[in-house]
Design a protein around this nucleic acid. Structure first.
Lengths: 313, 313
DNA sequence: AGATGTAATAGGATACAGCTATAACGGGGT
DNA sequence: ACCCCGTTATAGCTGTATCCTATTACATCT
């Protein structure tokens, strides 16, 4: 005979064993006494074993019943643990988020976000995945990353995104460049893109999102940048600019980074200041775990605070 | 929100996790696919956590789901173990019986029964409880012993009994007694009780069942035994008889016992041969576990065999 | 675009745990 | 010896929750 035992019956049995009295056990279980009798009878019939030696005046465990209770207790403990675990996850006391980010944003933004997140959700684990924009989009689309920190525009059509903030783009020139000197004397005068149309540019190699943005910005201003060098590493570009190889456009978070040597001069550009939109991207229509949701929230808050600080400076 | 999780849902979830496909999982669970979807949805709603990241083309565990499955697997394993245990008990592959017996029967009958029982039910544990008839009746009535090996009549009204066998009662006389000598010459001539009406008797002390039986037998034969000594130990009585202190009546199983020295001569009594009825007693209306049932059965079989052997000798 | 495979939804049927009422029992009191 | 109290078991009914079939809504591959 098939046994269709359910947790309810384990719980009922444990309560009877604890009280040694059907009526009181039923009361604690918030059911009527006959229901309890029925359930136990059904269970005993299924098991083919009498669990309690009972008559109208006493209720005692049989040997089989004692063995049953011992096992059942362990099971109910494990069930409680499972419920607690799920509750913890649901209440954001536990969880895991895999976050992808580009090396640039990873090294400059996340260090500000992660501590704040850890403070709010100390037991949610964050796994970081650094890669190029293109790879990150793929990882996120396939679900290997829960969400990624990217800049618009995205190429993967299966990704949705939430804007995180607008990152201004500055001009980097060598310290001895004439625009650097002018800015030193006249810091309030912004530099228009038109003034650098004949400069020599160092830019990122093809396939990196920011290279394309650089070209787009220049074209928008009516010229094609004259490229004299390309690198895969945006930090390398800074050093190249610092040593006089040319100029380049840089996201402001890069410009702010502290470097020990080979530091270019960073100059703000005139209105309309070019910028890029940073977003958190995740798979289209994919359920975001509460932990991932919380991460995005924290991110937005931290970014807002950053922007305010930028304005103050 | 209260969580009414049931084993069915754990099982369903595990199957989905194993197949990563609702339709196939439903098939293995012998339910329709929509039922499975419903159950999972309900569970997720109760837990407040998404267990599977799913769309029409793929089904993947979330972090929460992975954690759930891990716990659920352990629980289902424990449940399986519990079912197995109960099945073992129900199929008499396991169990425990507490058997009470008087020292006499315990030392002479049980050594014959236990090996046979162990052979048939190797994993059923037998716990032996030796005590006086009176105490055994109490222990059995209170449920501390599952069953007891006693002789009629019983005094506890709450006990039922099943006859196990009829034990003949012999006469024990000193080796040099005239009846012993007569039996040596004329072994076929039985001794009538009337022939020992003037003998001096050694008997058990008050409170022991067999003392009362001895007196009843003598009175039935029309005389009051002349008591010259009393002991609590029936073995002691044998020695006393052997050394010529008097005669006594003995259950045949005692008579059969091998003793190294001080052996009386045992003589059969004439028809109607006095006897006592050995019974297995258990609590009135009490459910006898299958294991206890099996023990009684084995006991009866062994006793039948013993009787047959007795007749052959 | 259309075909195929898959999960979700809708709506109806059914099984089962729950209920109330009542019976059956056991033990302790008068 | 009998009745009463506390208890468990049984009977019969009800409502909910799980299951079913039929259908819809997607997503992927051809």
């Amino acid at each position: 005979m098939m046994i269709f035992m359910e947790l309810r019956q384990l719980q009922y049995t444990l309560q009877i064993a604890a009280d040694k009295n059907f009526s009181r056990a039923a009361e604690k279980l918030h059911i009527a006494q006959p229901s309890l009798s029925q359930q136990l009878s059904k269970l005993e019939k299924e098991l083919g074993v009498l669990l309690f030696q009972r008559n109208t005046s006493s209720v005692e465990l049989t040997h089989a019943g004692a063995s049953f209770v011992e096992h059942a207790q362990k099971i109910m403990d494990a069930v409680e643990q499972l419920k607690q675990e799920m509750s913890d996850i649901s209440q954001l006391r536990k969880g895991k988020v895999v976050v992808g980010s580009m090396p640039i944003t990873g090294s400059h933004l996340l260090p500000r976000v992660l501590p704040a997140f850890k403070k709010g959700y100390p037991d949610i684990e964050i796994t970081l995945l650094e890669d190029t924009s293109m790879n990150l989009e793929k990882l996120t689309a396939s679900g290997k990353a829960d969400l990624s920190l990217l800049a618009l525009p995205l190429t993967e059509p299966s990704l949705s995104w939430i804007p995180i903030g607008e990152e201004m783009i500055d001009l980097a020139v060598p310290p001895q460049h004439k625009l650097a000197r002018r800015a030193a004397h006249d810091p309030l005068r912004p530099i228009s893109l038109d003034e650098i149309r004949d400069e020599e540019f160092v830019v990122l190699k093809k396939g990196q999102g920011f290279r394309k943005l650089t070209f787009d910005i220049c074209r928008e201003a009516g010229f094609e940048p004259k490229v004299v060098f390309e690198s895969n590493n945006i930090e390398t570009l800074q050093s190249l600019v610092a040593t006089g190889m040319g100029v380049t456009l840089v996201p402001r978070f890069i410009a702010r980074a502290k470097r020990s040597e080979f530091i270019p001069v960073y100059l703000p550009l005139a209105e309309p200041v070019p910028s890029r939109t940073l977003v958190v991207a995740f798979r289209n229509g994919r359920y975001l775990s509460k932990a991932a949701d919380a991460f995005i929230d924290t991110f937005k808050q931290v970014m807002d605070k950053l922007v305010v600080e930028s304005v103050r400076e």
